[in-house]
Design a protein around this nucleic acid. Structure first.
Lengths: 128, 128
DNA sequence: TCTTGACCCTCCAGTGACTGGAATGCCTAT
DNA sequence: ATAGGCATTCCAGTCACTGGAGGGTCAAGA
């Protein structure tokens, strides 16, 4: 398989696939013409990576998860730890965004949004 | 005022303050020794920027908001538009994170987290 | 006066995870 | 032979800082 076939099948852009090779997540073979040749195992890994990225795991987490996936002797506890840590980070992020959301909603509601210059949004930013 | 005084008062690191000058958000004066000299108006602007950044506005949004703040003839509608667009983006982000959270919570709950290798988290990543 | 330590300065490189683009080469069909 | 659609590499840019090197300045104490 050539890179654009893999891109179609995995939903990852060719650029991203090349990047994943560059940082050592995959090691596709090369044909005589220098083209990458992807085996099923490469495609499988890329699909795995794509789904992990969709769940928001960092590239380093993905690397860890892939290693665990390939280690038949892994402990599920190790996988769970990675996922739990990531979940915690996501929940922190959500809380942070919800705090911004609450403030912004309030300010937007208070702002007349007309031709006059008076604006509670700017007043708030100007004086905390 | 020197940069570290301003850092203390605004909560922004000196590096960030220098960076804000570099990208033209502020224009502090210079003393004979080459040190930045911050006037009250600079400190005020930096505090404004710090609060806008806390609300998650991008640097470019901050630039726009600062310009609107300094324009006595602004329309509050323009400010409101910037804030509303930003709020929309935040809400999109929250929704996206909540979707990840839901999936991850489910997977983490399902995973035994013990010494055995069987793991629904990896199974999910491996097969969508 | 000299030294010490806490400031200040600039410039360069790195972060994360790609993405865009240039310059170039290969493959297939007409 | 040529056209187009693939493929390759390498470089630069994104965003908002952050760290560090290498060097100048200032104020206080011996």
């Amino acid at each position: 398989m050539n890179i654009s076939d893999v891109a179609r099948d995995t939903g990852l852009p060719p650029k991203t696939i090349r990047y994943y090779e560059e940082i050592g997540l995959i090691r596709p073979m090369r044909g005589d013409n220098g083209y990458r040749v992807f085996r099923d195992s490469d495609v499988h890994k890329l699909a795995f990576l794509g789904r992990a990225r969709t769940l928001g795991f960092s590239i380093e987490d993905c690397r860890t998860l892939l290693a665990l996936y390939e280690d038949q002797d892994r402990a599920s506890a190790d996988v769970k730890q990675v996922a739990q840590d990531h979940l915690d980070k996501i929940e922190d992020k959500i809380a942070q965004l919800q705090s911004m959301q609450a403030t912004l909603k309030h300010l937007v509601r208070e702002c007349a949004g007309d031709n006059r210059p008076d604006c509670p949004i700017l007043s708030d930013l100007a004086k905390g």
